[in-house]
Design a binder for these strands. Structure first.
Lengths: 135, 135
DNA sequence: TATACTGTAATAAAAAACATTACAGTTAAT
DNA sequence: ATTAACTGTAATGTTTTTTATTACAGTATA
């Protein structure tokens, strides 16, 4: 997860909060963020699949928040972009090693607990609460 | 942090717990883990700088735990290998955008809180407790 | 002084992330 | 109907990050 997706998604959503109820195009968002419009479209497309925004194709189209900012939690954003554990990847151990054989099972459990702790912290913050100090 | 370093470091420490009080060479550890010995030496070297292991150069040398397994917390391991935030990188925003200008400050605060939540979960687990189900 | 180690730099290879281009499909306005 | 302005997404290229490998200087032991 050492990428910019969480930050990108949150930036997109924050812009929407700021531009209340306006339909935003990928070009507009991309300009604000200094990235290519195709990247924005990829992420809004993903956020739509996750129920956080609605999109409209064709002329006059764009993206809007699908719910009120107070009903979007940062854990929703995290889950929308999450790909790998925040603790990183596991090794592929030597199957002849007795320790290696079992360590990944324990790592799975540990990773889940640790991630859960982080996610519940994110769940305590709504998009609205996150945006307040910005606006 | 989408790498294998946390897993690697923990694997090394677990092997040491398993091989109680024996001095382990990088070749031995590397064999158990299916990785190159130079990678193990890089990580043990780092773990030494962080006070988790002691190393000995020259013939008959190798690595040992620097403290008892009950006194090593997984948060120590995390801090030893941590490089970037578990929520990923931030964007480089367009300085002309009022939202972009402030969002990274808020992200810093958020990232710190979220990471802290994860780290305190890791702090609750000692190397000994982690290893118990393995051994 | 030979042997068996660590430490680390340099480099190469592989994987992941990011950026760009292109264009099909959709909608609205004229 | 045609044009213009959008999204969606695939294909491709580039850059960055991560991992692996090689090599060898330095150190300790016998």
């Amino acid at each position: 997860m050492n990428n910019v997706r969480f930050s990108t998604a949150l930036h997109i959503l924050t812009l929407h909060y700021y531009m209340k109820d306006e339909m935003l195009t990928s070009d507009f968002i991309a300009g604000s963020m200094n990235v290519n419009a195709a990247i924005v479209r990829k992420e809004t497309s993903n956020l739509r699949k996750c129920g956080l925004v609605t999109t409209k194709e064709g002329k006059g189209g764009g993206t809007m928040l699908a719910k009120q900012a107070k009903d979007i939690r940062l854990s929703d954003v995290y889950n929308a972009v999450r790909q790998t554990s925040p603790l990183g990847k596991k090794n592929v151990p030597n199957p002849a090693c007795p320790v290696g054989k079992q360590i990944n099972t324990e790592l799975d459990i540990l990773y889940n607990k640790a991630e859960e702790a982080m996610v519940s912290k994110l769940a305590a913050v709504t998009l609205e609460a996150f945006c307040k100090p910005i606006i």
